[in-house]
Amino acid sequence: MIEVRDVHKSFGTQKVLRGATLTIAKGEAVVIIGRSGGGKSVLLKHLIGLLPPDRGSVLVAGEDLACMDERRLLQVRRRFGMLFQMAALFDSLNVYENVSFVLRRERRHTEGEIRRQVAEALEMVELPGIEEKLPSELSGGMRKRVGLARAIIYRPEIVLYDEPTTGLDPVAGDRIDRLIRRVWEQLHVTSIAVTHDMKSARTISNRILMLHEGVIYADGPTDSILGSSDPLLHRFVNGISTPQNEGP
């Protein structure tokens, strides 16, 4: 469903991706792990065409995003939903307007239908009855759950999560993990998340990719990656630093 071929990306003199290559099949629950600042979010943004690669290609259902202009990309993005690291809710809109944003723009739903679907989406993220609240009135965890409701209300085929548990306490993080798992199981979406939270990765994935120095260093089922004896993987998964500060 998604194929990334030899993608390179630099920002100024800093090379972030140096030939990342991966394939994700329909219905998988994939987590991309790697060091902070290692290019995970950059890679995720390539998958949805928010960033163009300097070299290489990103194919979604056989279509190369690198060859599309922004308006063509908008059509491809209808397949995607995305939860941002800080939720990226629209400040000036209340929860109802945020969650119903896509449905209202489509102009083919009645207000009653939209209201019902928003209520369902908020129910799914365990936040019923907060339609009238503003994003500034919500906690970090609630904002992420509203962001998730906004990302899934139009039933996308692929849902992307950028650091879904970052900045949350362990309980709120666990709640988000369970929701991501539930969305994957109930809506049958392809789930792709980037995180460096190993507990979260274990809960929400059935496959893990490790991005290291701009390339995919490891790729395998969740259990085998988390239990790997590879020194680099082992140190990263168990959070062991090295005295020379080399590697993860």
Binding site: L74, R77, A88, L89
Partner: peptide, 10 residues
């Protein structure tokens, strides 16, 4: 990232 969020919402 609200502009990016707009773009992801087509």
């Amino acid at each position: 990232e609200q502009i990016d969020a707009l773009r992801t919402l087509a």
